[in-house]
Nucleic acid binder design. Structure first.
Length: 254
DNA sequence: AAAACCTCCAACCGCCAAGCG
DNA sequence: TCGCTTGGCGGTTGGAGGTTT
């Protein structure tokens, strides 16, 4: 099998192999990398070590730039509102750190991941165990989300337990077969029913239930659709969310 | 004072998907 | 279609610095 590590850690120059540097970056390396990115722009990471004159692999350069050198990176402890946002985003998106980081200005995926693992993981685990023991959570629980990660195949049906229909009055109804979510009327100020109906009509479908989730995702990606579903047990309601998620939270907090 | 332990985070590792020839 | 390369992601680790004993 092709060994990436082997290829990444050695660079062949004039017939001799040179072991690439690892570990902490020096100020000089940082300066070189920064100058290089400012001059040539981001991307083409395989060329960056050569252009910058760095004895580092492309991944190391990319990571250093993204997590440390890039402008507007916020340093220091997470503020209360950031933690709150992180908790909510994690409820919706799971461990999709890059997506979460994209919604928290100035924070990198690595920052978010580290903060979660060191500060919030145990708290979340405790909440989960409380739920298992039958104690209702103050913040409710998530039953499904629609993934946006590019690494998730679009054809993958991640949430088969959720089914969705439109009732007589044109409102969305969702239900699940796992007993967690009972059929509840769904209202969304951001998901116009005529858009859904138009989509279904185009494809000769009677209800959303007949649509493959992959197709449904395609509808969502047109920017008109849902981004996530949240079950709020304390209010006995289900909410559909549109993107961007920043708007979602304004709505969610109502 | 120093050894043991803990916390945190920068950096590495391995995997996956997309692009390309 | 296949194999290689690249970009990107999440999981994990190592070590520096802080705290406790």
């Amino acid at each position: 099998m092709y060994n990436i590590t082997c290829m990444e850690n050695k660079r062949i120059r004039h017939g001799t192999s040179l072991v690439l540097r690892k570990g902490a970056w020096t100020a000089q390396e940082d300066k070189r990398l920064k100058n290089c990115i400012e001059k040539f722009g981001e991307g083409k990471w395989h060329l960056v070590p050569l252009k910058a004159g760095l004895n580092r692999c492309r991944k190391s350069c990319r990571l250093r730039w993204l997590n440390y050198l890039r402008p507007n990176i916020k340093r220091g402890a997470f503020e209360e509102d950031e933690v709150d946002l992180l908790l909510r985003l994690h409820k919706l998106l799971g461990n999709r750190w890059s997506l979460i980081a994209g919604r928290i200005p100035g924070r990198t995926a690595n920052d978010v991941k580290n903060y979660w693992n060191t500060h919030l993981k145990s708290r979340a685990k405790q909440q989960k165990e409380q739920l298992k023991d039958g104690e209702p959570s103050k913040h409710g629980m998530v039953t499904a989300i629609k993934p946006k990660s590019s690494t998730v195949p679009k054809t993958l049906n991640l949430y088969p337990q959720i089914t969705t229909n439109i009732n007589d009055t044109g409102n969305l109804i969702t239900s699940s077969n796992d007993g967690i979510v009972s059929p509840v009327l769904v209202s969304s100020p951001m998901m116009p029913n005529d858009k859904i109906n138009e989509y279904l009509e185009d494809r000769g479908k009677q209800s959303v239930d007949e649509v493959e989730w992959s197709s449904f995702s395609a509808l969502l990606e047109e920017g008109e659709g849902l981004d996530a579903v949240e079950y709020k047990d304390d209010h006995n309601m289900i909410s559909f969310f549109d993107i961007p998620i920043d708007d979602v939270f304004m709505w969610d907090l109502l």
